[in-house]
Deep mutational scan, measured.
Amino acid sequence: MSDQEAKPSTEDLGDKKEGEYIKLKVIGQDSSEIHFKVKMTTHLKKLKESYCQRQGVPMNSLRFLFEGQRIADNHTPKELGMEEEDVIEVYQEQTGGHSTV
């Protein structure tokens, strides 16, 4: 019986991991920090939209990076291997420009 009891508790931990929340720091170019608590399985588009709304800027005017890689709207913290207190960097999107060649 103890084996049966242990097995469901392991499964519960697996389920808990799926719905687990982590805190992420979003740091802007001006070094301002906003902290977000997100589920591991939530699409990061929600975090990006919330950040842009707080900053009063359109979402397409900023780019969000985690460990140097651009974050897509459909990425989740779990897919990117994010952990508690990880940092997302935000930069002004640069458009235009010309070749110097």
Rank of each mutant, 00 (worst) to 15 (best):
58 P>C: 01
47 L>K: 02
29 Q>E: 00
82 M>I: 02
41 T>Y: 00
47 L>I: 08
42 T>K: 07
6 A>T: 14
14 G>W: 10
94 Q>P: 08
30 D>A: 12
93 E>Y: 11
80 L>T: 00
84 E>I: 00
15 D>C: 10
21 Y>D: 06
36 F>W: 00
87 V>M: 14
92 Q>I: 08
37 K>P: 03
72 A>H: 09
67 E>C: 11
75 H>W: 06
92 Q>Y: 10
63 R>A: 03
84 E>M: 00
58 P>S: 12
53 Q>L: 11
31 S>P: 08
28 G>C: 01
51 Y>F: 10
23 K>Q: 12
47 L>T: 04
33 E>K: 08
25 K>E: 04
75 H>S: 13
37 K>D: 06
86 D>P: 04
64 F>L: 05
49 E>D: 07
84 E>Y: 11
11 E>L: 14
49 E>T: 01
12 D>Q: 08
34 I>R: 06
69 Q>I: 03
46 K>L: 09
78 K>F: 15
63 R>C: 07
7 K>C: 07
46 K>F: 08
60 N>H: 10
70 R>T: 11
37 K>W: 08
90 V>I: 07
81 G>T: 00
69 Q>R: 10
29 Q>H: 08
49 E>Y: 06
40 M>V: 13
60 N>R: 07
83 E>C: 09
26 V>H: 00
54 R>C: 09
45 K>D: 09
67 E>V: 06
16 K>P: 12
38 V>W: 01
54 R>G: 06
27 I>A: 01
78 K>G: 15
36 F>Q: 04
6 A>D: 13
87 V>F: 13
33 E>I: 14
48 K>T: 00
11 E>G: 15
93 E>R: 09
63 R>W: 13
7 K>G: 07
82 M>Q: 01
65 L>S: 01
74 N>G: 13
64 F>I: 00
93 E>F: 15
62 L>W: 01
19 G>K: 13
44 L>E: 02
14 G>F: 14
5 E>N: 09
59 M>F: 14
79 E>C: 04
62 L>C: 14
52 C>T: 02
71 I>S: 03
84 E>G: 13
48 K>I: 05
70 R>I: 11
91 Y>T: 05
45 K>T: 05
53 Q>D: 14
27 I>N: 09
63 R>H: 09
94 Q>K: 07
